[in-house]
Design a protein around this nucleic acid. Structure first.
Lengths: 199, 199
DNA sequence: ACGCACAAGTTGACACTGTCTACATGGAGG
DNA sequence: CCTCCATGTAGACAGTGTCAACTTGTGCGT
């Protein structure tokens, strides 16, 4: 774990290094078309070293998407812990945190939901489903507080996710510009969504 | 326009042929990673012929996305014309037509909203905005019929589009499987959306 | 303490891609 | 009829994902 260990022939941490490097490159402007060889170069290893840790480029991308879901879930969890008590407060906090995450990691968010690669299968992974579970639990708590009408839990959670995800996508694609679509569309939409859940 | 005109050195229709061929290949299974050279091969021209009609591969993809928006708008227009009178009827018809389009052209739909390439700019193209205009007009008609509460028109239209788009994405990514999420989630979500608009 | 199997690296090759430049063709307009 | 120029072709180039063959050196059982 010392500094010079990086020079070891087997530095034992290459998988993590490659993953981190790839995440970094994805986050850079125009990092969408990042290349496997470029990742290896920046990581300081040969161009085929990544194949010892990831079967495919698709496998790396899938893992990256899953890391993205981990981070998103963590951001959501954190937002509701920080937010004041009450369903309404936590609901708006979570929605804001979700969209913020996408705004700050647009390429990653697109990778997570793009489905261009093996990514589609990633959505059925437990790590991705955790994000869905978060929504379910939040709605459930709202029902227990009497703030959300009693309907099939998963249906409501799905509707919520769909709405927020749709908004996020439109936002990422610059379709929610105020001059085109009016001010605070996002806020309005979330308010409407909340009203829809409300008793 | 006769059959043998295809053999002309300049057959004068290459742009359309290339576009059609590319659309066909995109529609095929695993056509997501379709290649420019493969399009040229199938079109029976040299590998660099497409460059006389499209500056880039990105330019071709952008044009394909715009064609997708044309088709989607046409499908929506048709659905409301066929549907019985009344806002509710037309609203549900349009929602169903939208999701159907995506289900039948998943790769195209992803291309339209993926934003991986120059596609993002395509969303600001008039041809893409027509789809948005459709939603606006539909809601407007609902308001005139007294079926939709009076709120900022574009805000409501955006919320609708976001919801449907979000649902569509989840559906395309196989996240709406009945055993995971309950039966008829889509219908429920659309009903909820309609209720949200309703007075 | 020793030697060795095997995981973890490297190098080099292959087919293929997007794109550029130079050249060929032939249809339309003076 | 001739010639210009849009439209096509051929070939080259750097760069990519992936594979196979080779090297290295670490952890294990004896």
């Amino acid at each position: 774990m010392t500094a010079q260990e990086k020079k070891r022939y087997h530095h034992g941490d290459l998988r993590r290094v490659i993953l981190d490097t790839a995440m970094t490159m994805l986050a850079e402007p125009a990092g969408v078309n990042f290349t496997l060889r470029a990742v290896a170069r920046r990581a300081g290893v040969s161009h085929s070293a990544p194949y010892k840790h990831f079967e495919d480029k698709a496998a790396l991308l899938t893992e990256m998407a899953l890391v993205g879901f981990d981070q998103l879930t963590a951001a959501l969890d954190n937002s509701v812990q920080v937010a004041p008590e009450g369903f309404r407060s936590k609901f708006f906090a979570a929605a804001a945190a979700y969209i913020d995450f996408a705004r700050q990691n647009p390429s990653l968010y697109r990778l997570m939901f793009g489905g261009e690669f093996g990514t589609i299968s990633a959505h059925l992974d437990p790590r991705a489903l955790k994000t869905f579970d978060f929504a379910v639990k939040l709605i459930e708590q709202g029902q227990q507080e009497g703030q959300v009408r009693e309907r099939p839990l998963k249906g409501q959670a799905t509707a919520c996710w769909a709405q927020i995800h749709g908004l996020t996508m439109l936002e990422l694609n610059s379709l929610l510009q105020p001059e085109k679509v009016g001010e605070n569309v996002i806020e309005q939409a979330i308010v409407a969504l909340h009203e829809g859940l409300n008793i």
